[in-house]
Design a protein around this nucleic acid. Structure first.
Lengths: 229, 229
DNA sequence: AACAAGTGTTAAAGAAAGTTAAAAGCTGAA
DNA sequence: TTCAGCTTTTAACTTTCTTTAACACTTGTT
């Protein structure tokens, strides 16, 4: 059972864009074509993608800027740059902003496809793929069922509580960035959502207070960290 | 605390091979150079590598064959091909045998490095939580939990206090450069941040004053040193 | 000694986070 | 539709953390 991979394609050349879109869809990857960086970013925020193919030179917002903004919202999603320029500095810059690959035009569609596949193979493999049962300290957290148990009667969690706890678990012993959590769960990091998140942190702390080995600590100005020893 | 990445480099051109080996080692990646595919395979079996950089045209055993054999022994290890041929079929073949990337000569060493890093970033991801417990004098400092204990009731530290104390501990009995600390913790060594840091030094001194064997001394114009005897 | 630059220390102001409760929003059953 | 019961957001107040400011003291230099 494989998950359907959805591709965000940002390419201002309509002709090339449509050829690529058709090719990728024929190969089984639903693709959304965006004609400039700004539209691409809006699409990215609205829908759930699994892969980004970004042209660099685009009107309104260039590919580098776009990639930087996407990386802020999602550190994991693979990014592949397409570029007319083979220039060294551009390539290096591309990797600097978090790219997984950089392909120079002209390229063959087959090559684009195998490179996408090579990256996907690596990003899917680790056990990180939708693990829904987390164990830490004396707790066992079932994300799918939204249940948190620690010996006694399992605690039923609300959706938001479960989402937040899942993100914290995925970043166990590491800081979960505030804005990242807000964008993933609330889709927007505004002041009020941030306050809402704080309320949920308090709720989670109440659930977790039974085990002193587990602690949900704040990193001022950055985010929260679920610590277990 | 990062794991050391060891690279297997297969390249029959001694000149290029040594240049690459030296470059990669200068960048912190111990590299074993093998002059043909057969030797490379033997090296792979004998030692533990984390990354393969393979030339394609080599005597005795070509890079594709080598990669196939390596893949049989290890499905996870990243493989990057180097090739003089930009031929399409070769590239596709490379990815078919399980490559993560395919670089055509001539290439810049910087590009090789960033491509290696991009692949490693994706394969490493699982919980890189650095568990750090420092002990000095009568103190025990748990960075993750932001706790400093010395027998009695543990002192809860704030994020900035913990960051700074961690840097000082990592440079125990050595000078921690002011600007280094500022850049790592405040991301900018301006006058005001420097004053802020001084305030934190005072705070840390208060926490540390219980044990006379521990001292946080200033090195005028340079930085601070956490001294323990 | 005189001066400038660097550091020590304390207090305050400002920003971020903790907490609780009420308001608003949502969902399913009557 | 309306209502009850739940989730989520908003609001208000409290506490904590970080930065800024002020002033005193040190160090090194001329």
């Amino acid at each position: 059972m494989e998950k359907k991979i959805k591709i965000l394609l940002a390419e201002d050349d309509k002709n090339l864009g449509n050829i690529l879109k058709n090719y990728l869809e024929a190969k089984g990857y639903p693709t959304v074509l965006s004609e400039d960086g700004k539209i691409a970013l809006e699409n990215f925020k609205r829908e759930n993608f699994d892969f980004c193919v970004l042209d660099i030179m685009m009107p309104v917002m260039d590919g580098f800027t776009l990639a930087t903004k996407i990386r802020k919202l999602d550190q994991e999603i693979p990014i592949l740059f397409l570029s007319a320029k083979a220039m060294q500095e551009d390539k290096l810059h591309g990797f600097e902003v978090g790219a997984d690959d950089y392909l120079t035009k002209p390229f063959s569609m087959e090559e684009l496809l195998v490179r996408i596949k090579a990256i996907l193979r690596r990003s899917n493999t680790p056990g990180s793929s939708d693990v829904s049962l987390f164990k830490f300290g004396s707790f066992s957290f079932d994300y799918n069922r939204q249940l948190l148990s620690s010996g006694g009667e399992p605690q039923k969690l609300t959706s938001k509580e479960a989402e937040l706890l899942k993100l914290l678990c995925e970043n166990m012993n590491n800081v979960l960035d505030r804005t990242i959590a807000l964008n993933k769960i609330w889709f927007d990091d505004s002041y009020f959502n941030a306050r809402s998140m704080d309320v949920y942190i308090t709720k989670l702390r109440k659930y977790l207070k039974d085990d002193p080995k587990v602690e949900l600590i704040n990193v001022h100005g950055v985010g929260f960290k679920l610590v277990v020893d």
